[in-house]
């Protein structure tokens, strides 16, 4: 606040006189970070906890602004409408990778430069405590006997729940009643109130409730077991068909527009790479069940491609894509 006040006083006095005289190397002014999701959400929290470390390294402030809407498409389009000078960062989650097949936008992360893919979440299946099943196998058997009776929370087409459910339905052909919620937070609350029976959610969002015994975990959608849930076997042991989709999970990353000068990209990549290694940040991510990735460049591009191809084909096969992934040259995963 004090700094801001000084800036103001100085700014008001000298503005105009000194315009254009500042010539230094990148970054010569404050940056702007556009967060795709609202205040208090996971994307917001992850970005606000890693960026201050990057600010220290860059030596400038990154002013973070939440620009919500259109499952992140508004923020993505906004950043792509700005100058490619490295002063506007997109701080987003996995959603843009589905824009093309869902017909939401004609750009995705493939058309941007990844600065850092920070971390990945693991999807899990949770159920209300008194549900008559404890594992994925039992869930499948129960649902086959009582088709349509199990109510699952869903969060709109293209979201994590819809994709994980599409995977499950493709492998087991079972029938649920999907009750829509606008986010996994409200859906997990409804699960505790008994309004729904099961819910696919990201580990981090449900872990505290599981630890407190307010809901039970019935499946871990990963190929390896998690240190946070040592007693839960990975889903591939129960339903081997999942092997072809995994590892898969929502992620968080920082991106800039294509054609941003190499100097800016290098500096930003270095800053975020170091920031993501900060022990505080690592500790935070571990506790919330996120797997730190901290990748950039080709490695990040490869991960993003693979995510896009798995998800796009899953939603296309499940029948809720507007366009075929083939139209955009997205290859079917082997």
């Amino acid at each position: 606040m004090k700094k801001a006040l000084i800036k103001t006083l100085a700014g008001v006095t000298f503005a105009g006189l000194l315009a254009g005289t500042a010539q230094a190397q990148y970054p010569e002014k404050d940056l702007q970070g556009i967060i795709q999701w609202g205040a208090g959400g996971s994307t917001d929290t992850v970005m606000r906890s890693v960026t201050p470390h990057a600010e220290d390294i860059l030596g400038r402030d990154v002013i973070m602004t939440n620009k919500t809407g259109g499952v992140g498409a508004i923020a993505t389009k906004y950043v792509n409408a700005m100058k490619a000078d490295g002063y506007t960062l997109l701080m987003g989650a996995e959603n843009p990778q589905m824009y093309k097949v869902l017909g939401l936008a004609d750009i995705d992360y493939g058309d941007m430069i990844p600065i850092n893919v920070l971390a990945r979440g693991t999807p899990i299946f949770v159920a209300r405590n008194d549900a008559p099943f404890n594992t994925m196998k039992e869930l499948v058997e129960y649902t086959k006997k009582h088709p349509g009776e199990i109510k699952t929370g869903s969060t709109g087409p293209g979201g994590l729940t819809s994709i994980v459910l599409a995977m499950l339905e493709a492998e087991t052909h079972i029938d649920f009643t999907g009750v829509p919620y606008d986010g996994d937070g409200p859906a997990l609350t409804a699960l505790q109130g008994g309004a729904i029976d099961i819910m696919p959610a990201v580990l981090g969002a449900a872990i505290e409730h599981i630890k407190a015994g307010r809901m039970k975990v019935i499946g871990l959608v990963d190929t390896q077991s998690s240190p946070l849930l040592p007693d839960t076997a990975p889903i591939t042991e129960e339903i081997p068909g999942f092997n072809k989709y995994l590892p898969w999970g929502p992620f968080f990353g920082v991106f800039v527009k294509k054609d941003t000068p190499a100097e800016a990209v290098e500096k930003l990549t270095a800053a975020y790479h170091e920031a993501a290694q900060n022990p505080d940040f690592k500790d935070l991510m571990d506790k919330r069940g996120f797997t730190i990735m901290n990748i950039s460049g080709d490695e990040a591009a490869k991960f993003l491609d693979s995510y896009r191809s798995v998800s796009s084909w899953i939603v296309y096969d499940a029948g809720f894509a507007k366009h075929s992934p083939e139209e955009f040259g997205i290859k079917r995963p082997e």
């Binding site: 006040l5 800036k7 500042a22 400038r60």
Partner: peptide, 24 residues
């Protein structure tokens, strides 16, 4: 300045001026 609402900058290079001043 206090609530960091980035108002449209248009023809005035505000951020450059502010950065220059804070460096100074």
């Amino acid at each position: 300045l206090v609530f960091k609402v980035v108002l449209p900058e248009g023809i005035v290079p505000e951020r450059e001026i502010l950065a220059y001043l804070s460096d100074l």
